Amino acid sequence: MTSKGKCADAALDLLFIEEGDDGYRNPTELKMSQIVLPCHANHCGELSVGQLLKWMDSTACLSAERHAGCSCVTASVDDIHFEHTIGVGKVVNIIAKVNRAFTSSMEVGILVDCEDLYTDRQWKVCHAFATFVARRTEAGKVQLKQVLPRTQAEQMEYSLAAERRRMRLIHAEIMNDLLSSSTEFQGAVPAERTRVESVELVLPPHANHQVSTFGGQIMAWMENVATIAARCVRSVFKT
Rank of each mutant, 00 (worst) to 15 (best):
A220Q: 13
T119H: 03
S104Y: 02
P27L: 05
I80L: 07
C61A: 10
P27N: 00
A75S: 13
S212K: 14
K31I: 13
A139M: 10
Q34V: 11
S180K: 11
S181E: 10
C114D: 04
S76H: 04
E107R: 04
E173V: 10
W123F: 10
T85E: 08
C61R: 06
L111E: 07
E223S: 14
T151S: 07
A41M: 01
L203G: 04
V196G: 01
D79T: 12
Q143R: 15
C7E: 15
R136M: 11
A8D: 10
S235I: 10
R166S: 09
P204F: 03
L203K: 12
M167L: 15
A162G: 06
C70T: 11
I218C: 07
N26W: 01
H171A: 13
L52N: 09
F16T: 11
T74E: 03
R25C: 13
H209Y: 11
C44M: 12
M222A: 15
A162N: 03
P149Y: 08
Y158H: 14
D78L: 04
C39L: 08
E19G: 01
Y158S: 03
S159E: 15
C70D: 02
S48F: 15
H171C: 09
R168I: 01
F102K: 06
R121V: 05
H81W: 01
V199A: 09
L12Y: 12
L203Q: 14
S76G: 07
Q217W: 06
L62G: 09
A191Y: 05
A101E: 08
L52R: 06
H40R: 03
A10F: 11
R195H: 15
A188M: 12
R100P: 08
H209P: 02
A207Q: 14
I95C: 03
D78W: 00
M56N: 06
V202R: 01
M56R: 06
V88Y: 03
P38L: 06
K141V: 14
P205K: 02
V91K: 09
E192N: 15
A161G: 01
K54W: 00
H209R: 04
R136W: 00
L47S: 08
P190W: 05
M175E: 15
G187R: 12
G216K: 09
S182D: 14
T74F: 00
A139T: 14
E19P: 00
R168Y: 07
I95A: 07
V233T: 13
F16W: 06
R234M: 14
G140S: 08
R168Q: 09
D113A: 02
V88C: 04
W221V: 06
N93R: 02
A207H: 00
K90L: 08
P204V: 03
S159A: 12
S181A: 13
T85M: 11
